[in-house]
Every structure is written in structure tokens, then in C-alpha cells.
Design a protein around this nucleic acid. Sequence first.
RNA 1: CGGGGCGUGGCGCAGUGGUUUAGCGCGCAUGGUUCGGGACCAUGAGGUCGUGGGUUCAAAUCCCACCGCCCCGACCA
Length: 572
Amino acid sequence: MKYSRSLIRTLKEEPKEAETKGHRLLLRGGFIKQLAAGIHSYLPLGWRIILRISQIIREEMERIGAQELLLPAISPRNIWEESGRWQEFGDDMFRLKDRKGRDYCLCPTHEEIITEIARAKIKSYRDLPQIWFQIQTKFRDERRPRFGVIRSRQFIMKDSYSLDIDEAGLDHNYALHEEAYRRIFKRCGLEFEVVEASGGLMGGGESKEFIARIDGGEALIAHCTRCNFQADTEAVLGKGEFFTGEDSPISEVATPQQRTVEEVSDYLDVSRKNLVKSIFFTAPDKPPILILLRGDYEVNENIIKAKFGFSYNPASPEEIVKFFNAEPGFIGPVGIKDITIYADDLLKGTRGMITGANKNGYHIRGLNIDRDIKVSEFLNLRKVKSGDRCTKCGGKLELYQGLELGQIFKLGTKYSAKLDATFLDEKGQLRPIIMGSYGIGLERIMACACEQKADESGIVWPISIAPFEVYLLILNPEEPMIKKVADEITQSLTHSHFSIIIDDRDLSAGIKFNDSELLGIPMRVTIGPRGVKENRFDIYIRETKKTISCSRAQIVEECVRIKQELYRRLNV
RNA sequence: CGGGGCGUGGCGCAGUGGUUUAGCGCGCAUGGUUCGGGACCAUGAGGUCGUGGGUUCAAAUCCCACCGCCCCGACCA
């Protein structure tokens, strides 16, 4: 590819919409272009990277026996009604109507469609197991798209689905996927961790996430410093330390304008642990519930939704006033009759606590949980925080931020049961298919490589996913002698199957050197008058910043050697 | 959805009631000099100042509404 004929347009100045390093570099290098919030075009350079990532994924999926297919991106409403997710997805789902007014969605994921195929095609235990995968665009109307391509509303995902006759089969396919995913991310040159996760809206049982450690990443991972156990804080149930106040009679205390845990604990000069905060959850189709948590913890909404239903959300201020006759910040569990109360298990048996009085400007002191209120169940409802104890070994948990590259789920029969995807077993019994679901975000691999590998001069693409392997930088490209040498070197590199971007632009040298580094092409061969005259050519390795000089005859073999070395570093 | 910020040639910005052609840097075009790390000179093209209303003799500038984008907060690839 000749640079002069290409659609590569680098930007000298930083695009103002970009916040993270990786996003800035992808925009500056002209890999992507934003069309609207969370919606991007992949320009030729960016698309080449996506294609190379796709190829690695295909190879690894085929290695575990998966078959590629392609499902529609648009789906009629009925199968989503059958699974219940037409409601569960809520505003995250893009919806549209056809000319006859029938409802459709742009698929946010494909479990329903896979299950629909399975119920038509899979009839016998002899048809199983199966693994099906696709690489396709997904649509999710995220409440807040951000970080460029990392959290977007249209994105490319490799999703695969395993179909089995029993749990043992699922365990096997789940393990195969974990292994395939490890190989994929390694081959793409990424550093990552595998952590325990929660099923979320996908549902079902066991789940793992593949997380790249990145500051500012959206996932918060708890890591045990003793036994090395790692889990997403959305899922992990760490142990907290018990705390209780002094036993005392209940009494009201004026706390004018003091609403938040911070304000009340400062105003009354007590620890945050001494407060009980009340979070009111409502759902359109279910009775409201009141959640109690100690003041120093946050509610884990994942647990609430999984336990009580996905339609539950924190109530609006209007709803709170309606049910409690007090404003947010002053509500509490004392004297509540018609609302079921669930409390975090750290509150069990606590005395002398402080909570809202259901009266504006007042709190209650001396709350004794067992004596004063009726808790229907004590559960772990809190988010883990730094310093909590590991549930496995009791070691201290530390938290770090990460980017989720992929996730694997054991679905079980969640979808097959609802959509009636069954098979006849060897005894002639009708049984639901046991399913697993597995996803990888392709753009996230690209973005993650940028975040992890870039330096002050630009991107450093791992050789395995680089848009080109060699950047042929030609100085004085109009000079006939140089042009001739460059053509010959291009030919011999092409014969050795290198992908090459030839910078034949008639620009000053600095621009070309800087662009080659910004674009992150692994190797750069410079062809200029000096080299041609002295038969000495420089090969610059982007990753190590080392330059190797060699004669013209040695260029190809040097490049081959460097390429092998770069692949070896991926350590697959 | 709540809070904060921003919309002016392709990109980054200045101009915040009144010099008839709305500026600057980069980029782009043409010619020339350069040419191993973002060169220089000359000439030139390109903008209904996000959209729609309103106020005014006069609006990029003031007011209202809407749209869009970015950032911070309850989700996921």
C-alpha cells in the first residue's frame, strides 16, 4: 500500500473529544472516526487491525471445534418476549418498527436467536455437543457511551454458544473457551487477568471475566493479597468486619439539612459505620422493598436485581416522599409496616445505630436492629471495598481498575427452558439443552493494545495485530535512483509475504518519521540517499526502539528475523 | 436520567452588541528554494459562526427553545 494513495490522515493536534490515551491515539492516527456518540467508522487502518484480530479469534475458535455462522442483527420481538428480555433490557435495547407496525430490536446479544436455531435443528443427544460462533455487530443503547470505542453503542463482538446434554459437557466447553480466550488475548499481545464474575443480565451460573489492568477502567476487581483470588466487585462477596454501637433507648435527634451519610456522621461526630442507610427500591411489576446497609458500604445493585428481579431500581425522590412522607436522606426503617425490609448481614445484631426518622430534618439514635424493626432477611447486599476480607482465605482484598475484554458464562437451561429448546436423551426423555455463552469485544482488544503498549511517540502495535508489518520510509522519493531501490526492496519484502506501507510522500523527513512512530508499525526500513550510496540501510524496531543497520541484500532476512523475534515475545 | 462544560473553514483555537472582506496556527492548492527527525518564501481556495425563534437601527456576540458533542455518577464486550 502506498501512503500517498491511502486514506491515512494523521492529526498533529489532539482531538478535543478524546480523553484517554488510547482513544486519542486511535483518532490521531486516523484508525477510527466518530460519527455520533458511541458510534464509529473504522477507517482502513483501523479495519485492518479488526480483521487481523478476527483472524486470530477464528483460528482459536476453530481449534476448539467451533463452527462459524452469521446471525441477523435485527430480530422480531417474539423470541425476546419468550425469554423475558424484551422487558429486562429496558432502555439499553434499540427498538424499531417495520412498515406494518411490528416490533423489532437491533440485537444487543444473540442467545435468543441461537436458542431458536437450536430448538429447530437439535433433536437428539446424538446432535450434541455443538459450539457455534459469529463475529458480528451488536447494538446497545448505553446510558453513557465513553472512552471512544471502549464503551460504544455499536460494537463488534465475537460471541459463541455451546450446546450440551449435561453439566459435564458444559464444564468441558466452558474450560475449552477459557483456554481459547487465554490464547487469543496472548496472541494479541495483551496482558490480562482472569477473574470470577457475576452473570448479570446474561443470567445463569458460573462466569469469568478477562480483564486488562488499566487505570480508569470501568471494572473494579478485588484481588486477595494472600491467596491471589480475583473477582469482579460486582460479584465477589467479601467479608466485612462487624461493628456495633452501644445499646441505648431509641430517641430522635435534630439533623437539619444533614442528608448524606457523610453529612450526618460529621454533624453527630460518629463513625460512618454507626449509620444505617436506607435505600428504597421499586419495580413496576413488584412490591417495593427497603434495603438497609451500614453507612460505610454501597449497595450492590447486581445482587438486588439477581435476587429480587431485574426490574428493581432505586426509587425516585417523588416515590420516596409518597411512601415515607419524608425526603431522601431522612427515611428509615422504624415504624415501616407495608414494605418488606432486607438488611445487609453486617447489620445483624447491631445496636445503638443511627438512621433516618421518616421526618424531615431528623434522625433516630439508638436503633437496635433486633428490637426495633422487623427485617425479613439478612443477606450480603453490599459492594466489596478495599480492606475487606477474602471469603476463601480471610486475606486482605485490594481493588484495582480494569477493562473487560471478554466474559464467559455458564447459562445452563435459562434460555433453552424458556424457549423450549429440547432434545431426546438416550432413554427417550425430553430434556432442555445445557448452554454456555461466551463473548469478546474486538474493538476493546484494539483499544487495549493502545492503552497498554503506547509510548510518548505513539502506538506500538503487537506484530500479530499490526495493520502493516513494515513501514518503508522513502526519503527523496522523486529521485529516480532511490525510487528504483525502493521498488526492488518492496518487491523482495512482498515476496517474503510482508505487509508493507510505503511512505512515498514528498514531505520532509521528520513528518514521515513521526508518522511511522505514531502509527505504531512494528518495523521501519528507511531508504534514502545515504543508504543507497553506502549500501547501508536502517531497520528500526518500534517496540524496542533499536536500530539495526544492514546491507541491501540483508534487509529481507533481517526483517524475517525481527518478525520471528517479535512473535516469540508474545510467548504463545 | 441528574450534575458540569462546549458547539466559529478539515483540525486546534481567538473574537462575547457597531471599523463595510469574521481572524490566527496547522492542514489544503499552485509555483519556487529545500530535503536522514514535524523546513522556508510567495500566491490562493475554503466559513449561511449547531438549528429555530425572539430582542435591537444593528446579533457569532443578548434572551428563549431545541439539537449535538465531551466530562463526572447506579452497567457490560
